[in-house]
Design a protein around this nucleic acid. Structure first.
Lengths: 224, 224
DNA sequence: CCCGTCCCCTGATGGTCCGTCAGGCGCGGG
DNA sequence: CCCGCGCCTGACGGACCATCAGGGGACGGG
C-alpha cells in the first residue's frame, strides 16, 4: 500500500519535471475521462485521441503524463485497490458467530456487489491484463483481493482452532470463497438474464460464505 | 446449439459465394492462427495483419472470411461452447448421493479446471466482450455456462424435493456454484502465486460444490 | 502595469494498421 | 492446351500512434 501511495505522490511528467497545479489538474481530467470512456466504450477500441478529445486537450498532452493507455488505467486500478480496504474491514471487524455471523456474510456479499458495481470497467481490464501476463496488472490484481483473502483465512483459521478441528486449508478455502464473491458480483447481469432475482442470489452466496467460513449450517430458510 | 451449427455450415465469404475446399482450408488456417496469437499475445494488440502474416496470407484474405477480429474469435467461442457439453454430462449423469456424490463434485471440479486450461484465451475475450455489452459475445457467454447451471439446478431441485425441504432458490444456488467453479478455474495461477497448492484448492471447491448441491456435509477430512 | 521566465500545451509529422478495391494467379474442366 | 471461375493480393485513402520543436499562458518581480 505504501508503495502505491509513493507512485501517486512521486509524480513525474514525461520530461522529468514535477507538475504544478495546472498540470495535475489536466492529468486528473485525463484520468477521469479515461474512466468515463472505459465505462461507455470498449477497452479494445479505447484510443488515446478519444480520451484527449474528451478531456478537451491533445494527444501529446496525454503522453506527457502517461506512457500509454494502460498506464492511465493502472493508476485508476491503484486507486481501486486502495478502496478494497473496506472489504477487508468487514471480514476483520465483523463477528462470525451464529446469526450475527450470517449477517456479516450478508454484509460482505453486499459490499462485494457494490464494489463491483462501482469499479466494474476497471476490474475487467485488470483481470484481462493479469491473465494475459502483464506484470503491471498482475501486481494490482494480486493486491486487489489478496488482503481480503488473507483476512478471511485468518478468520477461518481462528474458528478451526477454537473447534480443535483441522479442516480444509484456510487459504485455499478463503480463496475459493472470495472467488465466489468476485465472480457472482461480476456477473450479476447474467443472473438477471437467466431470470434469477438478485435477492435469491444474495442469499445463496451469503449462505455459502457463512458455511465455508464457519463450517456451520446457516439458519434454515422458512420452509413452505 | 442447432443454431451454432447452422452458422458454421452456412459459410459465406465476403462476396456472397460459398467457399470451396481451398477456401475453407485458408479460413481454418486463419482461425488456428487467431487462436494461437490469442494465446501468445494480448487481445488488445491482436492485429489482423499479424494473423494474416502468421497464416502466410494477406489481410485482404482475412476480410474475405471475417468481418473483423471479433468475428473470428466468435467462431472459436462457438466451438468452445459446444465443448462445454461435457460439463453438463458430468452433472447430469453422475450421482450426488453420499461418497459417490463427493466424487462427482471432484470430477466436476477437475473438468472445469481442464476446460479453462484448454480454452482460457478465448474465454477471457468472451468474458470481456460480454461485460462490455457486445451482443454477439453476450449470447455465447450465456450459452456457455447456462446449460451446466440449468442441469445443476435440476439436480438441486430433485434433492430438495426428495427431502421435502424448500431451501434456497435452485437456479440461484446453481449459478453461485458455477460461479465458484468458473472463477477458481480462471484464477488457478493466482492461487499458486499466493502459495496455495492446487490440491488444496481442489478439495475446497469440491466440498463447496457438494454441500451447495446436496445440503449435506461432506466427509470430514482426516483430522490431526 | 509591464515584462521575463517557467510551465504547460499543441500543430505538425513519419510511421503503422485498417478496411477495401480492382486486378492477377492457379486449378480443374472441356 | 486453354478457358473460366474461385481465390488471393498489391496498393491505397483514412485513422491513430507517438514524438518532436516551438508557441502561449500564468505568475512573480520590478
Amino acid at each position: 500500500m505504501v508503495e502505491l501511495v509513493e507512485v501517486i505522490d512521486d509524480l513525474r511528467a514525461a520530461d522529468g519535471r514535477v507538475p504544478g497545479r495546472r498540470g495535475r489538474a489536466t492529468r486528473q481530467r485525463l484520468l477521469d475521462c479515461t474512466a468515463e470512456m472505459l465505462r461507455t466504450s470498449s477497452y479494445r477500441s479505447l484510443k488515446v485521441i478519444d480520451i484527449a478529445r474528451e478531456a478537451g486537450t491533445s494527444p501529446a498532452t496525454f503522453y506527457q503524463y502517461f506512457g500509454d493507455v494502460e498506464d492511465a488505467i493502472l493508476v485508476l486500478a491503484q486507486e481501486m485497490a486502495l478502496d478494497s480496504e473496506r472489504l477487508v474491514r468487514i471480514v476483520g471487524e465483523g463477528t462470525w458467530k451464529g446469526k450475527a455471523g450470517y449477517r456479516t456474510a450478508l454484509e460482505l456479499t453486499d459490499a462485494f456487489f457494490a464494489f463491483w458495481d462501482q469499479h466494474r470497467p476497471v476490474i475487467r481490464v485488470v483481470d484481462l491484463g493479469a491473465e494475459e501476463g502483464d506484470r503491471r496488472f498482475r501486481k494490482i490484481h494480486l493486491e486487489l483481493l489478496n488482503n481480503v483473502t488473507v483476512q478471511l483465512a485468518e478468520t477461518i483459521k481462528g474458528i478451526q482452532a477454537e473447534e480443535r478441528n483441522l479442516g480444509v486449508h484456510p487459504l485455499a478455502q478463503a480463496g475459493t470463497l472470495v472467488a465466489t464473491l468476485a465472480n457472482v458480483a461480476a456477473h450479476q447481469h447474467s443472473f438477471e438474464a437467466w431470470g434469477i432475482r438478485a435477492a435469491d442470489v444474495r442469499i445463496s452466496v451469503a449462505r455459502q460464505i457463512f458455511w465455508g467460513t464457519t463450517g456451520q449450517r446457516p439458519q434454515p430458510l422458512r420452509s413452505g
